[in-house]
């Protein structure tokens, strides 16, 4: 039974990979060829533009949402204040609502305030859906350490900013980094929300893939998939050290 599942899991990918080397544009096997890889690397300027946008948006939105989320998590975890319940609920909802709702609502917002759709709106959208994840991840890290070290810092003369920068942030760093990485991953992957808030000329990799799919089957997509899969595997292996660091203690 397990093998059935595994076959189900991998079969599509195997087909994808195999046909990326197909000499024909159709799904008829016509011999080995690297032409689609050639097409991918040398003839797809729009695709690489989109890829560049994806990376840019991922890095910038992950950075902002990590900063906002870390501060927010610290505030919620250690203090009580009047709008705390509101923040907790408001930042929990995006995690459970369907992406289409978030995408459509942002589109309507931008239309209502007259903000033109483009990279900026994509950036805003990405920060918005990343923020709850960072809040969640950093909060759980805050839960894990001995809080008396914060009192000790005050006791020894630290002002709030000292305690934050010299104690809280260094000790929560694994959580902060985890939040940042999750944000980057989600941002690179996102399709639905980005689809609704992107304007003409601002494309990300998923959006570009979507438009390619819409055009019909093209083995360039296969080639791209293979590159992406290979890239993720290489990335995963080379960052094992980071994972160890995040999950220590």
């Amino acid at each position: 039974m397990f093998t059935v599942t595994m076959v189900f899991f991998y079969a599509p990918l195997v087909v994808l990979i195999v046909f990326s080397f197909n000499n024909s544009k159709t799904m008829h096997w016509e011999g080995l060829s690297l032409r689609w890889y050639h097409e991918l690397f040398f003839n797809s300027r729009d695709l690489w533009n989109a890829f560049g946008n994806s990376v840019l948006i991922a890095l910038t939105s992950a950075s902002l949402s990590t900063v906002l989320g870390t501060l927010g998590a610290i505030g919620i975890y250690w203090y009580n204040f009047r709008f705390k319940k509101y923040v907790q609920i408001a930042s929990f909802l995006p995690l459970i609502l369907p992406e289409i709702i978030i995408g459509v609502s942002l589109l309507i917002l931008f239309a209502a305030i007259g903000l033109k759709l483009g990279l900026l709106t994509i950036f805003i959208a990405h920060v918005t859906f990343n923020l709850p994840y960072v809040l969640l991840i950093v909060s759980s890290r805050l839960d894990e350490f001995d809080h008396s070290i914060i009192e000790a810092a005050y006791d020894l003369g630290a002002r709030e900013i000292d305690a934050l920068l010299r104690v809280i942030v260094p000790v929560s760093m694994p959580g902060i980094i985890a939040g940042f990485l999750v944000s980057i991953t989600l941002s690179l992957e996102d399709f639905v929300i980005t689809f609704f808030v992107a304007g003409p000329g601002a494309s990300t990799l998923p959006l570009h893939i979507y438009s390619m799919i819409r055009f019909g089957v093209s083995p360039v997509i296969n080639a791209l998939s293979v590159v992406l899969i290979a890239g993720s595997i290489i990335l995963a292996f080379s960052t094992q050290g980071i994972y160890k660091y995040i999950f220590q203690k």
């Binding site: 900063v67 906002l68 989320g69 501060l71 927010g72 610290i74 505030g75 919620i76 250690w78 203090y79 009580n80 204040f81 709008f83 705390k84 509101y86 923040v87 408001a90 930042s91 909802l93 995006p94 709702i101 978030i102 459509v104 609502s105 942002l106 309507i108 917002l109 209502a112 805003i124 959208a125 920060v127 918005t128 923020l131 709850p132 809040l135 005050y154 709030e160």
Partner: peptide
């Protein structure tokens, strides 16, 4: 010590309000 909670939480709160709560409310209104 002073209650710095609002200071820490305000940026996230503002962002989520502006880009999540408000849009959803607009949809509700519409």
């Amino acid at each position: 010590r002073k209650n710095y909670g609002p200071v820490y939480a305000l940026p996230s709160a503002l962002w989520i309000s502006a880009f999540f709560v408000v849009p959803i409310s607009i949809i509700f209104m519409y």
